[in-house]
């Protein structure tokens, strides 16, 4: 009897069919009812354990597999392995998120430190050492300003000399010079008639007050009696002002003469 029960429990679905052919009908119905009750108990115990461990997802998975293959014991082991993997993956995901938050929190601190660094300027020696005393910096800037002032003054003096006329710079009194020329010429012509026979080489080349060549042909007159330079091409270019100047001068002179003559009339 014991061997019969053992075999029916382990190999239930297949063997009871074979036995029913040999034995009576009443024995068949009793054996089937016992088998089903035993099997159901085992399934319920496993279900309770799994529910405690995991949530609804695992329960749903168990139900699906239950509907497909109820009588396989190996499948239960597989289910337990499947449940552990997603939980592990979820744990790792949470950890990665926490790391990102920490990184974000650290970044603004770094920027604040950079800002504090940029606010202050660091002065250094030629050797690279820091200069922390303010008095030294002020002294160096003060000495620079003095040196620069002297340099600027020298440059201004140089520019003044550059812009001044060379004749005025040498202090030549132009009016007196012209008068001397006229006097010497007039005296020479009057006192020494033999001057026409002499031939001075130096005088053939006309030169300016400072020894530069001048235009050697007749040139139009101007109020200062300045001769043109040697580079002039001989073409008179003017807007007519010099002629107006001379006309005005003549007009003034005539007025003086007329005033004198009118006095005689009275």
């Amino acid at each position: 009897m014991a061997l019969h029960q053992y075999l029916s429990e382990t190999y239930g679905p297949t063997k009871p069919k074979n036995k029913t052919k040999k034995k009576k009908k009443e024995s068949k119905s009793d054996a089937n009812s016992d088998k089903t009750s035993l099997i159901v108990k085992e399934r319920l115990s496993t279900l309770q354990q799994e529910q405690e461990k995991s949530g609804v997802a695992s329960f749903s998975k168990f139900d699906k597999q239950k509907s497909k293959n109820i009588w396989k014991n190996l499948e239960t082991n597989e289910l337990s392995h499947a449940i552990t993997h997603p939980s592990a993956s979820s744990i790792t995901g949470n950890e990665s998120k926490n790391d990102l938050k920490e990184i974000r929190a650290q970044e603004p601190l770094v920027t604040v430190a950079d800002k504090s660094k940029t606010r202050k300027t660091i002065y250094r020696d030629a050797q690279g050492h820091k200069i922390q005393e303010d008095s030294k910096i002020d002294d160096s800037s003060f000495s620079r300003s003095k040196y620069e002032d002297e340099k600027a003054a020298e440059r201004e003096q140089y520019l003044k000399n550059l812009n001044m006329g060379d004749v005025q710079k040498l202090g030549i009194n132009v009016d007196a010079h012209d008068k001397k020329k006229n006097q010497t010429a007039s005296s020479l012509t009057i006192e020494d008639p033999a001057i026409t026979f002499t031939h001075d080489k130096e005088r053939t080349v006309k030169t300016s007050l400072l020894g530069r060549k001048l235009y050697d042909k007749p040139a139009p007159e101007n109020r200062f009696a300045i001769m043109p330079g040697s580079r002039w091409d001989g073409v008179h270019r003017s807007n007519g002002f010099e002629e107006k100047w001379f006309a005005k001068q003549n007009e003034i002179n005539e007025k003086k003469v007329q005033s004198y003559t009118l006095q005689e009339d009275y």
Partner: peptide
């Protein structure tokens, strides 16, 4: 342009201003 005698600048300014070249 710079002249040897500063008075030449007066002549140039008075006579060549407005002259067409």
């Amino acid at each position: 342009l710079k002249y040897e005698d500063q008075r030449s600048t007066i002549l140039a300014v008075d006579n060549l201003n407005g002259f067409k070249i």
